[in-house]
Design a protein around this nucleic acid. Structure first.
Lengths: 362, 362
DNA sequence: CTGAAAGCGCTTACAG
DNA sequence: CTGAAAGCGCTTACAG
């Protein structure tokens, strides 16, 4: 590493900054008056003559006085700092990361709400993984409240946060055994229901659902939507049509059994499952939407367009970020109401090209 | 926008945040001791027994005490918070944004240096554009120091920052009329010199340089490298071979004149200039590297691979971010030395496929 | 209408 | 080794 160091003189050290008391002295008023005038506090039961205000402002200008924001915050008991905590690095190597659109929305709304943002880079244990509690201390406490996000959350930390009453909002639904938390999620259930309904309207009677084995909330929500659609449409739900497993566990035999059982459409929860499905279909000489229909339950984050024009729904990530900030600010505005609030935002259906009327129906 | 609100009870209201005096009381020591133990001030002429330290830490853990960063800043003038200020949104709509790799490096190094990061989303004026001074208050002051970056900086704000003695490091060379600032830049001059030398070694004798009209430091540095190369290689430099203008101002006539004057290779400072050059060359029935050679002076940030395999150099953005943090931390460690420091990091030459021996030389 | 005073939660000399 | 005290620069009741 070659570096060039060039040293130059900086300007002379600044003289002491004028403070409130200097202004007060020059304007011949008490410091309190200076504070009231500068902050234009009309609410206080104090009437200040225009002449006095003028004197104060003149003194401010003459001295070039600027209030110290730190002192202001200490005295005013708020710092308008909002935290963002992620269990992984917040600026990850992959550009199109999962987090990105959320951060976009968070930044935008935090700016609109007139807060600054604190990123907890320091909150990492010896193993490099981040955690909220360092030496059993809640490191988020330097902010007024925080937005948490990430898939590898530590639920016992969340529980502890709730117990301590620290204001926070999670992005994504998270249910804890010992109490609800505030969160903003996407309405996966409704989005999935919509896709099933769309398939049924195209003529499909038997729709398989390929889901990961983990019972994460986001998966449970999708499954709930799948079940709800069947119920609402009066279609019998066959439990065997729900496959819970990783992509590697999806075998040609499984898919052939599905076809043999009259399945004409597939719901895949994630990109690996979609890929595996298409791979097997290809082996079987079948393609979508000619021989079967296929939809992905939520837009992919890992890569661009792994499957072009797939039927899917868009997760409103940016809007979720914004909404999380709004919710948090609202929580902070009403510290007396000890209630967790949950918000589900609608996804956007994308018709795509992988769902069509079933072959036998043509 | 459809939202579902579900209300549930939160845990009991958080009790008052513990403060230093609470810890002191529980540990049966004075607040001063708590401060000394927590900040591990071995320097002070105070010896504290291991038992006392243990009691303090136990009390800290039991109460979940976290020092108030604002109070810390007011009293001790430091709080291990580093700021990042950008004149544009920090999480911009374009994923592959200019800022991204810098932030990557900043986050990584800030974490390594055990600081937290403050993003100044609030520092935006009425017009939506951000500015450091709000009502003439330096909003960066809540942090110990800050990294600034962005192309649309306000130089009078930078001057003011210098005058006030606020510690900061700019990413990119910036020269102010009234005093040097600390910055970390890429060594554009050396990188450009290297490319010219590379072209000359391939046999090119006359190399044109297309640069934007603005005299930004990054442009001046490249031009300096271009000139230096000519001087070192004993090649006469013809001023007309430097074209300063936007892409739209580059005309087929200009390029034809260059060819007629014996130019066999082109340096283009940015992607629009490269594109324009290739467009015109195409019109003239010429292509690189067959009929002419072409290099881009620095990797493109706007989009992926606008020109595959172009000869160029990589700007060490991530490393610049890390180096900026290191420099800032160093500046903070030596507040007495009122010196600005400048660091230039080397770029990486990429041979690419658009430079070859000139046609007439074959 | 205005001033004197307490307090925000820390750090850092300064005495003992 | 430890404690009492001052001070950082503000805001906000509370008296007058």
């Amino acid at each position: 590493l070659i570096k060039r160091f060039i040293k130059t003189k900086m300007g002379p050290k600044m003289k002491r900054r004028p403070r409130q008391s200097d202004v007060a002295a020059l304007a011949a008023v008490s410091p309190a008056i200076v504070s009231l005038v500068i902050n234009d506090r009309a609410d206080s039961n104090v009437r200040i003559s225009p002449e006095t205000r003028q004197r104060v402002w003149d003194a401010v200008r003459e001295l070039g006085y600027v209030a110290n924001p730190i002192a202001r915050k200490l005295a005013g008991n708020q710092n308008r700092l909002l935290g963002v905590f992620t269990y992984e690095a917040i600026f990850p190597l992959e550009y199109r990361n999962f987090y990105y659109p959320f951060l976009l929305g968070i930044e935008e709304e935090v700016q609109a709400q007139d807060y600054d943002l604190v990123l907890f880079t320091r909150a990492s244990g010896p193993d490099g993984r981040r955690s909220i509690y360092q030496d059993s201390i809640n490191s988020l406490q330097i902010t007024d409240g925080a937005i948490l996000l990430g898939v590898h959350e530590n639920r016992s930390e969340l529980s502890r946060l709730v117990r301590e009453g620290f204001p926070f909002v999670f992005i994504g639904r998270r249910e804890l055994p010992d109490g609800a938390i505030s969160y903003v999620t996407a309405d996966y259930s409704e989005a999935t229901r919509t896709i099933v309904e769309y398939m049924v309207r195209q003529g499909h009677q038997h729709i398989a659902y390929l889901r990961p084995p983990e019972n994460r909330e986001a998966t449970l929500d999708r499954e709930a939507g799948y079940r709800l659609a069947h119920q609402q449409l009066g279609m019998p739900l066959i439990e065997q049509h729900i496959f819970a497993g990783d992509a590697e566990e999806v075998t040609p035999q499984l898919i052939e059994r599905f076809f043999a059982a009259g399945i004409t459409a597939f719901l895949a929860e994630n990109t690996p499952l979609v890929r595996r499905m298409l791979e097997i279909a290809d082996q079987l000489g079948k393609s979508a939407p000619r021989d079967f229909s296929l939809a992905l339950l939520g837009d992919h984050t890992e890569e661009i367009n792994p499957v072009p024009d797939i039927t899917t729904f868009l997760i409103p990530r940016k809007e979720m970020g914004k909404e999380a900030v709004r919710l948090l600010v609202d929580l902070l505005a009403h510290p007396d109401e000890h209630e967790a609030r949950q918000i589900a935002l609608p996804c956007t259906f994308v018709a795509g090209q992988t769902v069509a009327a079933p072959f036998h129906a043509e």
